[in-house]
Design a binder for these strands. Structure first.
Lengths: 122, 122
DNA sequence: GGAATACCTGAGTAGTTGTTCAGAGATTGT
DNA sequence: ACAATCTCTGAACAACTACTCAGGTATTCC
């Protein structure tokens, strides 16, 4: 039912046509869109992206190893990890003085894989 | 080969251990990470996210219908669409006065679907 | 207990970003 | 050609963000 219904027209700032109404019914709610945007926003930073892909490769890394891997200060890594952990994207485990981080979710792994493939495949 | 090799230690700001070196070899390059972050950053805005999900539902919409659907000004929509189009995420088609936008890539569709499922499934 | 190490937190700041506003192209119908 | 309509563009501004810096917490080893 998403075949184009010819032209809907657009009568000066009030195009409440059938197509718009139908789309709005199926559309993600503003709240969902906000949460989706928040998720993407977290991935949308080079440092955090590198951290996540490092975890994707290594499986599990402590903070200072992450810092060395992506070449940023440990405080910057710590700030970044806090955001990712709060959002449930990474999980942590303490072992002695060190705290090991890993990807929390298989969905996130899929997302990272899919995005990398998208990037490399065109 | 990503089984954990016990603890690597972390000798004061210079933990160039084997694990770090191995991860860095496999890691996405900084350039790739930047492009990935740019991609996610584009999805990481509520307005742009809603626009993309609207296109995912409707298939194709003109600017003013998009504006009505997501309830933002047409100029804001236009600005947003320019970014998405420049990045190759959406494509456009002119028909008379109107310009119809659609998702450019099936990878993007998968990404949007996967993310929505992630959000709703936990 | 005390020093050393790994990590965290809060404040401050430079850089970035999304929106509005005003105006310019581009296309259609008369 | 002219008016109307749909879309685009550039500048200005408010809001947000990611980093650095200084200091704090938690754990281990002597």
């Amino acid at each position: 039912m998403n075949t184009v219904t010819a032209l809907d027209g657009c009568v000066t700032r009030a195009p409440d046509t059938a197509k718009v109404a139908a789309t709005r019914d199926r559309l993600v709610t503003p709240a969902e869109a906000g949460r989706l945007a928040d998720l993407f926003k977290l991935l949308g930073d080079p440092t955090r992206a590198r951290l996540l892909y490092a975890l994707l490769e290594a499986g599990e890394l402590c903070v200072c190893d992450l810092a060395a891997t992506v070449e940023v200060s440990d405080t910057a890594v710590s700030h970044a990890l806090r955001l990712l952990r709060t959002a449930g994207i990474v999980a942590s485990r303490r072992d002695g003085r060190m705290i090991y981080y890993r990807l929390a979710d298989s969905h996130v792994r899929l997302l990272l894989d899919l995005s990398l493939e998208h990037l490399r495949h065109e």
